[in-house]
């Protein structure tokens, strides 16, 4: 990569202060994202995917303690930026699409009006121009009869339609970085494909970079150039889609693959991953997967290495698989 990455996150650590102690939600997470690239961020629920994304957007509340060596979006340092500066970057440079689109939209404001709010903030559009642009934005995500839907409220639309509105909203400000946090969870399979195609189409038209947060590996494989696999707040492995799917090196990635159904798999082929995520409030071993790992060895108690297997492929493990299992 000769050009600097659009997003550069280095050693991101997020702790939450709770009544029952500190939750070490994310630890030393680093990843880069080139312009126009789509990266899948996968892992079980509670592995820190969304927290990492929210930390990048600076959307975490006061109970979160966010530390990092660097969080950079398009050359803007997000780590030290003031609240006002971050406000100016949000929407304009980066935006996020949420899982439950209906609750992510203001329930008592017409959807067109909500798009106008974004257009006014980031593109200075007002009055008829803004209205026209909002209708156009609705048309662009193929919402039928956008003129009329402009006045609709979220509760009048289906889940898939709401997600389209969400996409229109996210793209209205023409951002460079899109974080899609489980954008298709809760939608039926055909709608999932339509929404994902829409995201891919829009982002490639604008050379936008996308982080796709999901636990659906099969879906993600079709749309992502690269993957980062998270477990219990660590990125255990990252690499290109073929690195991950054909040459998985981390035991967790391997198990995740076996637990994922694909075209020819039968129910008995699917294997559950043993154990559960460790309690992130406790003192944790260097490798947070060690208690679930079939390859655990005495060496695993030592500090976790970060091994580059080749230029694109990196794994955090003492005992990686050399070949795909």
């Amino acid at each position: 990569m000769t050009t600097p990455p659009l997003l550069d996150v280095r050693n991101l650590t997020v702790d939450f202060a709770t009544r029952d102690g500190t939750v070490h939600a994310v630890e030393n997470v680093s990843f880069q994202l080139a312009r126009g690239e789509t990266m899948g961020l996968v892992g079980e629920s509670g592995s820190g995917k969304s927290v990492s994304a929210f930390a990048v957007m600076r959307l975490l509340g006061k109970s979160a303690n966010v530390r990092a060596e660097r969080i950079d979006v398009g050359g803007h340092d997000l780590l030290t930026a003031s609240e006002a500066a971050v406000d100016a970057l949000r929407g304009k440079r980066m935006t996020i699409i949420f899982q439950n689109a209906r609750s992510a939209l203001n329930p008592i404001r017409p959807i067109g009006q909500q798009i106008v709010d974004v257009l006014r903030t980031h593109r200075g559009m007002i009055g008829k121009d803004a209205r026209k642009a909002a209708v156009a934005a609705l048309a662009e995500v193929r919402i039928p009869d956008p003129e009329r839907r402009y006045h609709a409220y979220p509760f009048e639309l289906s889940g898939g339609m709401c997600q389209r509105v969400m996409i229109a909203l996210a793209f209205a400000s023409e951002p460079e970085l899109l974080i899609a946090d489980e954008p298709t969870t809760g939608l039926d399979v055909t709608t999932q494909a339509v929404i994902m195609d829409l995201i891919r189409e829009k982002s490639s038209q604008r050379r936008m970079s996308t982080i796709l947060i999901t636990h659906d590996l099969t879906l993600a494989a079709e749309y992502c150039d690269r993957f980062a696999v998270m477990h219990a707040g660590h990125i255990v492995e990252q690499g290109t889609t073929s690195d991950i799917f054909e040459r998985a090196a981390h035991p967790y990635t391997g198990l995740l693959m076996q637990a994922t159904p694909h075209g020819a798999s039968r129910l008995e082929d699917l294997a559950a991953i043993p154990g559960t995520l460790p309690d992130l409030r406790r003192d944790l071993p260097p490798c947070r997967f060690v208690h679930r790992c079939p390859r655990a060895a005495p060496v695993c108690a030592a500090a976790l290495p970060r091994r580059a297997l080749d230029a694109s492929h990196e794994v955090s493990c003492h005992m990686p698989w050399k070949e795909s299992a």
Binding site: G91, T95, I96, N100, A104, P107, D117, V118, T121
Partner: peptide, 19 residues
């Protein structure tokens, strides 16, 4: 969620709080 969205869209604090 929709307040998080509004903030993520970078809407002005005043709009987020009032509207």
């Amino acid at each position: 969620d929709f307040i998080t969205t509004a903030r993520a869209e970078g809407l002005p604090r005043r709009t987020v709080l009032w509207t």
